[in-house]
Structures are given as C-alpha cells and as structure tokens.
C-alpha cells in the first residue's frame, strides 16, 4: 500500500513538473509579471502599508498557486476522465483513495517548490525587507491556503468534458486573480468590482499574506472565507463524484 502510494505520488509529481503549462503558467508568467510590476512601479514604492516589491510578490505567488491547483489538479482530472485513464486505473488494485491522496500530496509538494522558487527568485533579484519569520509564515499561509483552490480544482475535475474544463478553468483563474486584487490593489478597481472582490477566496488568500508582510495580524475573516469556500467546493465535488459512482 505504502509502496503504491509513494510510486503514485512520485509519478504524479513528475507529470506536473514535466508539463509545459506548469513551467509557463506556474513559474515563468508569475515571475515575469512580478518583475514587470516592480520595474514599472519601483520595488520600494509603498503600497497598502508595504512596498510593491513585497506586495506584488505575495500576489503573484498566490496567482501562481491558484493556477497550479486549478489546472494541474482540476483540468488534469477532467482529461484523465475523458481519456479513459481513470477507467483504466479502476482495473488495477490502486484504490481511488490512494490515487486521489497521492495526487493531493504531489500537488502540495509542487506548491511548496513553487513558493520556494518564486520567493528565492525575488529575494535574489531585489533587496526585500522581510524577516526570516515573515518569509516562513507567508510561505506557510500561501502553502496551506492553496488547499482551498485544490478543492476548487476537484470541483472543476468533475466536468467530463476536458475542453469545457479548460475554458472554465482559465476564466476562473483570471477572474479570481483580477477581481481578487492580485493584478492591482482592490482599491484601484471600480467600486462594484471591489464589492465582489472582497468576498472572493482569492482576495482573502492574498490578503492574509499582505497583512503578514505589513507586520499586521491575520484577519479572522480571511481564514473563514478561504476555509468556507474550500469546504463548500470539497463537499460539492465529493457529492458529484459519489452520485456518478452510484449510476
């Protein structure tokens, strides 16, 4: 059982890392935008009680992890259903629990790697004023918070048509990023967008990290909204999976 779990987790991790979409959308694009924003606005220019160099680093890391969870987990699930891969695995002794569990573990390992890569790239290029404790707590918050978006991915993964899943996944990822204030601060957006954005899990996800880099305490509402969305996505996707099994 353990041997199976380890082999499956290794295989799933390799598949994510080798995906050209991972390299492009999870690493290259967030980093490119990070360096674009910091050079456009100035690394040290202050924003929301911190500087662009730090604020945007948190936003772009959050953006990368949302995308990684939605596409590498969610969209990939849809493809695996569509291509008959899931059906093939059902013929082997691999249980659905081990299969999904190893996917989630692989995904979390990769998320940690993404955080380390993006944080260290920024740290090497810019002189970022964060204490070791802040680096670690922000990293942990973003890492653990990404579970909520894995739940969103699971919901997306219940779609049987992979093309629909890709389309919805892209819209979700961009929508959550823009309305959540990850591209530009929420108070720079039209008021109706702000009104929506405040309640989005993406905003709450990034907001937790923004507060920490500004030396403020974590807001309880950030945690509640993020965990609440995560729980709802999880319950709904489990419900859909189970209902489909019963047929």
């Amino acid at each position: 059982m353990l041997k199976m779990f380890i082999a499956q987790t290794k295989a799933e991790s390799i598949r994510i890392v080798r995906s050209p979409f991972f390299l492009l959308f999870s690493i290259a694009m967030p980093l490119a935008f990070y360096f674009l924003f910091t050079s456009m606005y100035g690394t040290d220019k202050s924003i929301e009680a911190t500087t662009w160099g730090v604020f945007s680093l948190m936003s772009m890391t959050a953006f990368s992890l949302i995308g990684t969870a939605v596409s590498q987990f969610g969209i990939r699930l849809s493809f695996e259903h569509q291509d008959g891969w899931v059906r093939l695995l059902r013929l082997t002794p691999l249980t659905p629990a081990v299969w999904l569990g190893s996917k989630l573990v692989a995904q979390m390992v990769i998320h940690l790697v993404v955080i380390v890569i993006i944080f260290s790239s920024a740290g090497v290029v810019h002189n970022i004023q964060l204490t070791a404790m802040q680096w670690i707590t922000c990293g942990l918050w973003l890492w653990i918070g990404s579970i909520a978006f894995l739940a969103l991915g699971a919901l997306l993964g219940t779609l049987k048509n992979a093309n629909t899943s890709v389309a919805i996944g892209n819209v979700l990822q961009m929508g959550l990023a823009i309305l959540g204030g990850l591209w530009m601060p929420l108070n720079g957006l039209p008021t109706w967008m702000q009104a929506i954005g405040e309640w989005l899990p993406s905003h709450r996800y990034a907001n937790g990290a923004w507060n920490m880099v500004a030396g403020q305490a974590l807001e309880v509402i950030d945690f509640i909204i993020l965990a609440g969305f995560g729980a709802v996505f999880m319950v709904v996707s489990v419900y859909i999976f189970n209902r489909r099994e019963a047929v």
Binding site: I16, S19, L88
Partner: peptide, 16 residues
C-alpha cells in the same frame, strides 16, 4: 484486481 489483467479499447497513455 490483483489477479486479473485487462486490456480495454482506446486508452490514451499518461502524459509526462
């Protein structure tokens, strides 16, 4: 599932 091997029609290979 331990003792039976099966080849079904139209299965795509795992990417990566």
């Amino acid at each position: 599932r331990q003792r039976v091997g099966a080849l079904t029609q139209d299965v795509r290979a795992a990417d990566g």
